[in-house]
């Protein structure tokens, strides 16, 4: 419950979360999602809210519902690649926007990012 906190409608937050799980590969193409009720139980969330999140993702072509079988991650990989790029673009856009607002130059951002990623890699080893 406590994970849903930002000032964005809860159904959109759940949709974002599922979306990210697909991008990261945690949820594979063609994989079946938990039923609306099970998803609700998992996150202590109103089934109507889960339904809205699923519908939203279906509208975007990320999920598809097969009659009588449940909701699945879309098989259309090209779509996923596109979504993956889109999400990357969005996140970088936000990041750069904030950095520029604080007055960092392109070179500073680039080198900072490089250094940060290198540190993470080292930390992993």
């Amino acid at each position: 419950m406590d994970e849903f906190n930002a000032s964005k409608p809860i159904y959109l937050q759940l949709a974002d979360r599922i979306h990210r799980q697909i991008i990261s590969g945690e949820l594979k193409a063609g994989e079946k999602l938990p039923s609306i009720r099970d998803m609700g139980i998992k996150y202590s969330m109103n089934p109507n809210t889960v339904q809205r999140a699923y519908s939203e993702l279906e509208r975007e072509g990320i999920l598809e519902t097969k009659r009588g079988q449940g909701t699945f991650v879309s098989e259309r990989q090209d779509h996923l690649v596109l979504q993956r790029d889109k999400l990357k673009h969005e996140q970088i856009g936000q990041f750069v926007h904030v950095m520029q607002e604080m007055g960092y130059s392109a070179a500073e951002i680039l080198s900072g990012l490089e250094q940060y990623l290198n540190n993470i890699e080292k930390g992993d080893e």
């Binding site: 009720r37 609700g40 139980i41 202590s44 109103n46 089934p47 109507n48």
Partner: peptide, 14 residues
């Protein structure tokens, strides 16, 4: 509280 909330979601048919 958590089990009650889960109970509500599981057993109320909207």
């Amino acid at each position: 509280r958590e089990s009650i909330v889960k109970g509500m979601i599981s057993y109320v048919d909207l």
